[in-house]
Structures are given as C-alpha cells and as structure tokens.
Amino acid sequence: MIRIAAVGDVHVDKDVLGRFRPALEELPDRADALLIAGDLTRHGTVDEARCFVTEFGGLGVPVVVVLGNHDHQSDQQARVTDVLTDAGITVLEGEATVLELHGHRLGIAGVKGFGGGFAGACASNFGEREMKEFVGTTEVIAQRLEAALMSVQVDALVALTHYAPVPDTLVGEPLEIYAFLGCYQLGRAIDATPAALALHGHAHHGSERGRTPGGVPVRNVAHPVIKQAYNVYQLLSDSVDSALVAN
C-alpha cells in the first residue's frame, strides 16, 4: 500500500507563510510522499519560490512538483526550479522519478502541460503561425509526458500535470475557457501508458473526479477544489485502515 498526498495551486507568497504548515507537519503520519500540481507561487519569482520552500520543504517525505502557469509569469522558471531543487524538492518537466516506498516502486512523471481544448472544441494546428505554435507546444508537451511515463518500470505510475487531461474535472468552469484549462493530448498520452492515476490543478472552479477515455482515474487537486491542505490517495491497496477510508 502506498499513500500519496496531493494539492495544487497553493500560490505561495509571504502572506501564505504558516497557513499550510500545521497540516503539513501531520503529513508524514498520513502519506508517504507529497505531489504538487503546479502554481506553487503567485508570480513565479525567486522570492516566492523561497517562501514555497519554507512552507513546503523539510517535510520528512519526498516532495515532487511540476510548475504551473503562475510559476512562469516572471520568466524566472529556471531560477525558481533551482531554488526548489536546492531544497531537495524534485521538479518534473518531461521527466520521471521513482520513489521506493514500503517495498514498492512508485513512478511519477510530470509536465506542466498546456491548453488546447477537448474533442469537439479544440484548437487545431492550422492557420496562423501563432496558432500553430500554440497547438504545437501542446503536442510537444504531451509527447514528452508520454515518453516520461514510459521511461520507468514501476509498481504504480502517476501522471502529474498542472493543466487538465480531461474535461470531466473542469465541470464548474465556464465552457468557453476549457481550451485554456487543458487539452485532450495530455489524456491521450496518459492513456498510452499503464498510469494508475492522473493528478492536475489549474481549474479552481472545476470538479474533483474524472476519468480519461481509457479509464485512468483523474483528480483535480487544485486547492480551491479540494478545500483542505492536501488530499490523500491510496494506491496498491493490500490492506486498508478502515478508520481513515471514506465510506
């Protein structure tokens, strides 16, 4: 049995310091690792990255993250990544990492992802250069996610993105902005692999649960959606603590 905690869109700056910490101090008693689905910071500055490290670092369990669109706002994503990495946090962008937990191998592959939309209402790689660059970016990122997912041999595989791989978890958002919240290419990449779970954020008004067309469970862990410091998901269940499992 592996338990992973997950949250996204925590948007840390000085004014958030201390808000998550009490719940995070309890995290090692509840989960074996923490995954964060992007938008770690508010404007993507180095100072905010340091605040994030202060709040989410040194937990005693591995912390694995992807960046979100907010973390790109100041064009300092490389320096933000350095601050996180120096603090022992694993930052994924087209890569995978393997955690050895209770004798099991948990693989996590991550990309930020991008928009583009979903079947019947998606952008096409056609027309103006800007449009082709937009959709081309989406396609390249999805290909990198699939390659990262396929690069590891593990007992349980998790896809971690900021943008959504399915529309199910966007329900609650205006239909008109779905194309800016995710894309079908991420879902297709996940479905081409043996992923057991896909986690994303970005859609603050979306819904918590969905599935890819291929049946992979998808969870939107954006903080305003889950409304608590983190959710805990149990994989590879061989024994269940009934006191903690939802009825």
């Binding site: 808000r19 057991a196 969870r219 903690l244």
Partner: peptide, 14 residues
C-alpha cells in the same frame, strides 16, 4: 479564503 486544514479521509484509487 481557502481552508487549509489536514484531511480526515483517504481515497482508495481503483
């Protein structure tokens, strides 16, 4: 203000 308390439940993924 989004609440930030620790969770009380675990979801089993299947």
């Amino acid at each position: 203000i989004t609440r930030a308390q620790a969770p009380s439940e675990v979801e089993e993924i299947s």
